[in-house]
Amino acid sequence: MTQHLSEKLKLLSAVAILLVLYIHSGFHDDEIAGMAANHYTQEVVSTLLGRCAVPLFYAMSGYLFFLKTPRGLASIPEKIQKRLHTLLIPYVLTALFYVAFLVVVNSIPALSKFINSSILPTLHQSWPRVLAAIFYDAGNGSPLAFHLWFVRDLLFVVLLSPLLYVLLRYLGWGWVLLAFVAAFAELPYLPVVALFWFSLGGALTKYPVAVAHPRLGLALLGAFLLVSAAQLLTPELALWKPARIPIILLGVSAIWLAYDALVPAGFSLRRHAWLDAACNFTFFVYLFHEPALNVVRKLLVVATGKNSPGYLLSYLLSPWLFMALATVVGIYLRKLVPRLYAVVVGGR
């Protein structure tokens, strides 16, 4: 992997995690009722732009997973074992931390108002249901730590990687097309959307797509923004729902290709210390941004006021403020308790 590609993956991961933070920084409709500026700002950033974040993560994960397979199919079990270490351990620890955090906060009246809901009713169920809620599905399609659904589905796809390797090897882009069609279906227990994006990333390692001109990315980005603007202005049109995945594909492709047109060839992360640090702690930020981000955005509202400017300022600043704070925390944890930090983030 070239230095340019390595830094590209790091920077795009930082962009994607920032979009995820914006998705989870939005205020509910009843909180910003009648505030048109707030509503449309959240729609643009969280809904229309933010929808590219998780697919981009899946595609990059598939790319990195299948990038080096020197022994062919025989290389896959070792990669699975490594991913179980880098994903499963952080998943379990973060899921448990989330529950412990909420139990503590809910027990303190002065702090409980900064949390949207209580998990105590869930914890009063039978142990099998409690464990299922914590580590798999709390009844809404996500575990109690709802942001971890991404890692849960990624782990499932990784376990299917031997089959995916064979399909990519013998069917090539034909398999990606089949996975794309399957992504439109809602199948129980099978993360077909994650399967498509992961397969797409894997296909790009085996069958690279040549780009005639880097400005193609800018053209695609312009097209994605135009389509998003049309969707913002005409949300009632029925075509937007079936077109969701193709539109996201356009957006992800635009982000990936536009990077090469927007970032100079001589750019180096090492010359930008804080940006480099932020890029190295994106997984830590992802793991622990909930429910801590919720506390940050509500504290900002206390300071700015429960009005349109206050909610808007909190929404716009919360992701940046939290990412900066989490990066600083990550730096000190890695410095003071390196072994603990390594375990928590899966050795990253």
Rank of each mutant, 00 (worst) to 15 (best):
L313Y: 02
A179M: 11
S314Y: 06
S228M: 10
L21K: 06
F267D: 07
I248R: 09
A254Q: 01
E78K: 12
L48K: 07
A59K: 05
R169N: 07
L293K: 14
K206E: 11
P338S: 01
N106A: 09
A219H: 02
L250T: 13
S142E: 11
T234M: 14
P309E: 15
P338N: 09
A185P: 02
R339E: 12
L257D: 06
M60C: 08
V302L: 08
W197H: 02
L216W: 09
D260Y: 08
R339A: 11
G251K: 00
V337I: 10
S13R: 07
V211H: 05
R270W: 04
L155V: 11
A210M: 06
L336Y: 12
K206C: 06
R334E: 13
F27D: 07
R297F: 06
I119T: 02
Y40W: 13
H24L: 02
E186F: 05
P246M: 02
A16F: 08
G222N: 04
F57P: 09
D153Q: 01
K335E: 14
I89N: 05
Y91F: 10
V209D: 10
S126M: 07
L163V: 15
G141W: 00
F146G: 00
S199C: 11
L232K: 05
I32H: 06
R83K: 08
I255K: 03
Q125I: 04
H4I: 15
S308E: 15
L225P: 01
K68L: 09
R71M: 08
T86K: 09
W127D: 04
A258T: 10
S112N: 06
H272L: 10
F101R: 00
L163D: 04
L195E: 01
L18D: 08
S228W: 15
V211N: 03
V344I: 15
I248L: 13
F198T: 06
A133C: 05
L12W: 09
D276N: 15
I76H: 01
V157T: 12
G174R: 03
W240Q: 09
E31T: 14
N307E: 13
A14I: 07
Y63K: 03
T327A: 08
T205N: 05
L200M: 14
L200N: 01
L299M: 14
I134K: 06
L249D: 02
P208S: 10
P235L: 11
K8V: 06
I23M: 12
G266D: 14
S142W: 00
P264D: 08
A182L: 15
G172P: 05
Y165H: 08
L312I: 12
A265K: 14
V158Y: 01
F284T: 10
L56N: 00
R83L: 06
T41K: 03
E31K: 14
G310K: 13
P214N: 02
L154M: 10
R334L: 07
P291W: 13
I76Y: 03
P121N: 13
L312Q: 00
F224P: 04
E290C: 01
N38F: 00
S253N: 01
H39C: 02
S61K: 00
R152A: 03
G141T: 12
F198M: 07
